[in-house]
Design a protein around this nucleic acid. Sequence first.
RNA 1: UCCUCGGUAGCUCAAUGGUAGAGCAACCGGCUGUUAACCGGUUGGUUGGUGGUUCGAGUCCGCCCCGAGGAGCCA
Length: 431
Amino acid sequence: MRTRYYIEDAARHVDREITIEGWLTNMRSSGKIIFLQVRDGTGFMQCVASKGDVGDETFEAAEKLTQESSLRVTGTVREDARAPGGHELSVSAIDVVQVAEEYPITPKEHGTSFLMDHRHLWIRSSRQFAVLRIRSAVMTAARNFLDSRGFLELDTPILTPSACEGTTTLFETEYFGERAYLSQSGQLYNEATAMAFGRVYCCGPSLRAEKAKTRRHLIEFWQIEPEIAYADLNDIMEIEEEMVTAMVRSVLETRANELRILERDVDRLRAVEPPFPRITYTEAVEILKKAGADFEWGSDFGAEEETVLSERFQKPVLVHRYPREAKPFYMEDDPDDADVTLSVDMLAPEGYGEIVGGGQRLKDLSTLSTRVDEEKMPRDDYEWYLDLRRYGTVPHAGFGLGIERFVAWVCGIRHIRETIPFPRMLNRMRP
RNA sequence: UCCUCGGUAGCUCAAUGGUAGAGCAACCGGCUGUUAACCGGUUGGUUGGUGGUUCGAGUCCGCCCCGAGGAGCCA
């Protein structure tokens, strides 16, 4: 196969003639010199064509180019401080693949609604380029971390006969005449694979039919969910710390340019390393009360409470031992305090809120069996889950890391809708 | 589901109840180092829909549709 050149490698090809294949993002012309801003998915590069060098025919073809026209540009890579990115291509030839029709997204400002309607095109722009390349790096880093620790990636089903967590609204569908639901978490199935393989994780979409309408919620979001046999609450707090640190570090190393595009304050990210502060839910409630919040012990934190708490720390904070009523049925009870569970949430700093939720799972058959009945869950559908407590039950624990919230925090962007290529939101399923 | 705000040119916005405008984009022309380039010109409108008040409605009122921000719930 022929050699392919990519803009991200331009620095390695200084003074050599290469061909880049991409799209025109913007163009400036000064009569006898044209500046073409070209992107190829790996980066952005300025290409300079002067009439004397390329000849009249190529120059006139370049003048007719429109925004987002596709083209192959051949030229010599030069270092030049005047070029955005420090390198530019001194053009010798242009091969126009297509002169694009009038492009709806102009270099000027646009509203969110318009941009979301054109999401399939919006992802071409530099800010989205940066965010989505960071998302990919985040996924890779998470997998690399878990793989290096001996975890097996074992996927869990999307179509399920009943709810994982009774309370949340599920999308309903039909499975050859039977009622079925779209998964909102792989966790229960993870517990089964963990009993078979020890350390496992799944990564996939979670679907929740909640009419959520906030910058922290999507209808369809992705989680990476590890589950570990013979592990307790402290074990997973440690792994969460190490995993989040490894992921942040990897983004700093491999996506420095993207963080620069986003103007992210990387010092805040460099500060992320173990140990993370750990406080109990009860201590968190005291902090909130001292801060003047009107909050009663027992319920889960809302957006405002999470913001107050996370802004008090420079690093992500682990809040553990939530009350029974604030957590799902499968959480293990704290043997030292019957009112709380062996659960833990990680709140990202700078007001980003919960990015990880997890805990130790109920081990005892009769306790779990009672809970299933108390929650009025269809017992037949959970017999397999109870089996895990009949045949060699062990203490085990796991957590789920929300990819979009994590990416939003790392990128320093306000709304998670930009952290996934095609967000599914209330009132918005297209494109 | 609830609360708040909004819908005017392709986009972002302006317009005391009295002739519907600007910048950008597009198109034409100029410019050999531009950085959201710049300069001159041209084109571009069923003011979300519907009913009402009024001599007169983009503007005021009712209903509906759509969107944004936030809440609840959660990752």
